[in-house]
C-alpha cells in the first residue's frame, strides 16, 4: 500500500483548527504527496486559510451538523467517500473526545481496525508504520496495518510539532452525510463552558499541578495562586478531578491533557503511569511530595521531599516578595 493521500480530521475550536490537528497535518506532509482535511461545523471556510498554510490543499466539509454529536455524521460522510473510491490511504485523528468517537464509528462502518495511542508515524516500504505508547508510556510498540482500505490512526497530542509551510488557502468541497439510521439521534441540548483565566493548560510555559496530597479542595487555591505568579496554568491529577475539586479540563494524563511545558511542577502527586504519560515530556520537572519513594521522583529533575502545605506557601511568599 503506497501512501499518496492522507486525510486529517481538522477539529475546530474557538474559530481555529486545534493544535493537535495542525501537528498531524504537519507530519502528514512528510508522509504523503497530498494532505487533505475533513472538517465540520458552520465555519469551515474561515479555517481554510490556516489549514492551507500548514499544507492542506482541500478541505472536505461535512458542513453544519446542528445539535448532533460529530461521531456519527462525520464518520458516515467519510465512509461514503471511501465506499465511492474517493477515500485516502490513511486518516489521522487527534485523540480528542470527538476524534475518538469518529474514528471508532468509522472503523466499524468500514470494517477496518483502528490504531490508537499513536505517538509516532513514519513511512516504510510505501506503508505507514506507527509508534504507540503503551502501559502508561513505559513501552513503545511499533505497528502497521495489513490488508486493504484506509488506515485509521488516533494520535496523541504533542506527538509532532506544528509548522506552517506557507501554502495557499485550501479549497473547500462538500462531503455529504450518508444515511445514519437510528444512530444519529443523540442531541446536544445545552453547552456549558467552564471559564478559566490565564494561559491554556496545554500551551502554557509553566504548569503547576496539584494532586490528592493537597488533602482538601480548599488547598487547591494555592496551586492556582502559584500558577498565577509564574504566569502558568494550573493542572491536576485525576484523583482530585474525580473527587470534584477541579473541573475535568484541568486533568493532565492519559485521559486528560498532554502537556510539554518548560517547567512542570507536581505538588502532592504520586506519579501514577497514567499521570506520567501526560507530562513526562516536559522539559523540566519539579516535584514536591512528602514520600521520598513516590514514583514522581523517578522523573523529576528537582525533587523536594516535603509537605506541600509548608513548601508551597513559602514559595508563594518568596515569589510575592520579588514583586
Amino acid at each position: 500500500m503506497s501512501i499518496e493521500t492522507i486525510w486529517v480530521l481538522a477539529e475546530v475550536a474557538d474559530g481555529k483548527p486545534i493544535t493537535t490537528s495542525l501537528e498531524l497535518i504537519t507530519q502528514a506532509r512528510s508522509l504523503a504527496g497530498t494532505v487533505e482535511a475533513v472538517a465540520w461545523g458552520p465555519g469551515t471556510a474561515d479555517v481554510a486559510g490556516t489549514l492551507g498554510e500548514h499544507g492542506v490543499t482541500t478541505v472536505h466539509d461535512v458542513g453544519d451538523i446542528g445539535d448532533a454529536l460529530p461521531g456519527v455524521p462525520v464518520a458516515s460522510a467519510v465512509a461514503a467517500a471511501v465506499a465511492a473510491g474517493k477515500g485516502p490511504d490513511a486518516i489521522l485523528f487527534p485523540a480528542t473526545y470527538d476524534g475518538r468517537d469518529i474514528a471508532g464509528r468509522l472503523s466499524a462502518k468500514l470494517d477496518r481496525p483502528v490504531l490508537t495511542n499513536v505517538v509516532g508515524l513514519s513511512a516504510d516500504d510505501g506503508g505507514l508504520v506507527s509508534q504507540h505508547a503503551i502501559f502508561g508510556g513505559t513501552q513503545v510498540v511499533t505497528a502497521r496495518f495489513t490488508g486493504e482500505g484506509p488506515g485509521i490512526f488516533v494520535v496523541r497530542a504533542k506527538s509532532f510539532a506544528a509548522e506552517p509551510s506557507g501554502g495557499a488557502a485550501a479549497a473547500v468541497v462538500p462531503l455529504a452525510v450518508d444515511d445514519t439510521g437510528a444512530t444519529n439521534t443523540a442531541v446536544v441540548v445545552a453547552r456549558h463552558v467552564e471559564e478559566r483565566s490565564g494561559p491554556k493548560l496545554d500551551e502554557a510555559d509553566v504548569v503547576v499541578s496539584g494532586g490528592r496530597g493537597l488533602g482538601e479542595k480548599d488547598s487547591y487555591a494555592m496551586i492556582e495562586e502559584l500558577a498565577g505568579l509564574l504566569k502558568g496554568a494550573p493542572g491536576a491529577s485525576r484523583a482530585i478531578v474525580d473527587a470534584g475539586w477541579v473541573p475535568y479540563a484541568y486533568q493532565v494524563g492519559q485521559t486528560g491533557k498532554t502537556v510539554k511545558p518548560t517547567v512542570y511542577l507536581a505538588c502532592g502527586i504520586s506519579g501514577a503511569t497514567q499521570h506520567l504519560v501526560g507530562m513526562k515530556n516536559a522539559k523540566n520537572i519539579i516535584a514536591i511530595n512528602k514520600d521520598q519513594d513516590a514514583p514522581i521522583f523517578t522523573v523529576a529533575d528537582l525533587g523536594i521531599v516535603g509537605d506541600v502545605h509548608k513548601v508551597v506557601p513559602k514559595l508563594i511568599e518568596a515569589l510575592k516578595a520579588r514583586g
Partner: peptide, 10 residues
C-alpha cells in the same frame, strides 16, 4: 468536553 460539558439527550 474540552471547554466544560454538554448536556446531551438520546
Amino acid at each position: 468536553t474540552e471547554a466544560g460539558y454538554d448536556e446531551v439527550t438520546s
